[in-house]
């Protein structure tokens, strides 16, 4: 059933998101053409305003994607469509996972499209290839790679889960559900920030108090602990949010 949910979730959002991202592709092409016109290259005003328009659009697409997916979650789970979603023979966690995976997939697509777009527009091929080579051939510490990958994965999971838990808590209220969702989201983000600082400080303490002979390995340890600490925080948040969403769906659902 999970596979089917994922399939239908993809179908439901693909067209709209595809067109939104097409805008970036279009802009990239337009931009590429414009920059090659000598007249444009000479005018600073034009160049700067073009860059601004581009940047704003990219940001808009990014934010738009997030908002669209969050609204989709709300509409499909907690409005009239919820009557269908929750009477399907699937478990609530399957709904969370299917929507979350699609959200993450589009975030990745987002990132890839924007990255490729920037690369194409701004950086000549040779330097781009150098950049890619430097990343792939650098001397990576195994543990560091794992940590980075874990951080990326957990970080990606955290984004939709944070939206979903805010929306789920928000819809518990009779009125102003959207308002409460936003408030909850802001509160969560702030609490996470504060906790993040606390965790960072705590994780820095042992290395700060310990031997500071080799500065590079010390800074690596500091970075490791910081990353480890915030990774842990993110992980706990993800699990907590997931359980909270599931609980609300199973026990506190009151569709109207």
């Amino acid at each position: 059933m999970l596979g089917k949910l994922i399939k239908h979730e993809w179908k439901a959002v693909a067209k709209t998101l595809f067109f939104i991202h097409l805008a970036i592709v279009a802009m990239t092409l337009v931009g590429k053409i414009l920059v090659s016109i000598k007249a444009v290259q000479k005018s600073e005003i034009l160049t700067v305003s073009m860059v601004m328009v581009y940047v704003l659009s990219v940001i808009a697409v990014g934010i738009g994607t997030h908002i669209y997916l969050a609204m989709r979650f709300y509409k499909n789970m907690y409005t009239d469509e919820g009557y269908l979603s929750f009477t399907l023979p699937v478990k609530s966690w399957e709904h969370i996972v299917s929507k979350g995976l699609i959200a993450i997939a589009w975030m990745v697509i987002d990132g890839v499209v924007i990255f490729a777009s920037i690369m194409l527009l701004a950086i000549p091929k040779q330097e781009y290839m150098e950049f890619v080579n430097s990343i792939t051939h650098a001397n990576w510490e195994w543990l560091y790679i794992v940590e980075v990958m874990a951080a990326v994965v957990v970080g990606l999971c955290a984004v939709p889960l944070t939206y979903y838990v805010s929306i789920s808590i928000g819809q518990l209220f009779k009125n102003h559900k959207m308002l409460f969702s936003v408030i909850v989201y802001v509160v969560i983000k702030n609490v996470q920030q504060v906790l993040g600082v606390v965790v960072t400080v705590i994780s820095m303490l042992p290395s700060a108090m310990g031997n500071m002979d080799d500065s590079t390995s010390a800074s690596m340890t500091v970075v490791n602990s910081m990353m480890g600490g915030s990774l842990l925080l993110q992980l706990v948040s993800c699990v907590g949010f997931f359980l909270a969403i599931k609980f609300i769906m199973d026990k506190k659902l009151n569709l109207n």
Binding site: D80, E81, G82
Partner: peptide
Amino acid sequence: GVETKKIVSYLPERTYLN
């Protein structure tokens, strides 16, 4: 739960389709 939803067909009062 999941098992009963397989054998219960529900028509709500509202339009619940996308």
